[in-house]
């Protein structure tokens, strides 16, 4: 178990940079992770996705699949890829302070 610096924050992470202690997460850290992932600013639609992922993850123990997310009406598939370019499920989970999503779809 390692740690990683995002902006001015040092958080516990795995070797891929996913946070391992959700207690440490806050919105400023999320913004700092987003920056590192190439997202300059987290907007309202980003936060809607992040909130939903955190709620689902708390309830079910893992981040929702892209399909579950689009079916919930939180975000459309195209929009999700636009909001988090280059790997939306992984990036959004990382920013949300959640575990790396498992599952192939």
């Amino acid at each position: 178990m390692g740690s990683k610096t995002y902006g001015t924050f040092v958080v516990e992470t795995n070797d891929e940079g996913f946070m391992t202690n959700f207690q440490q997460w806050n919105k400023d850290i999320a913004a700092a992770i987003a920056k590192q992932e190439g997202i300059a600013e987290l907007t309202a639609p980003h936060w809607k996705v992040i909130d939903y992922m955190q709620k689902e993850s708390a309830a079910k123990g893992s981040a929702p699949s892209i399909r579950a997310m689009t079916k919930s009406g939180v975000v459309g598939t195209k929009e999700f890829y636009d909001l988090f370019p280059g790997g939306p499920a992984k990036k959004a989970a990382k920013i949300a302070g959640l575990k790396k999503p498992v599952g192939c779809v």
Binding site: I66, R67, A68, T77, Y81, V105
Partner: peptide, 17 residues
């Protein structure tokens, strides 16, 4: 497992680019 039926999967993959 959230693997959609083929028609829905095609739509989803298309939306994904």
């Amino acid at each position: 497992l959230d693997i959609p039926p083929i028609p829905e999967f095609v739509e989803m993959a298309h939306d994904a680019g």
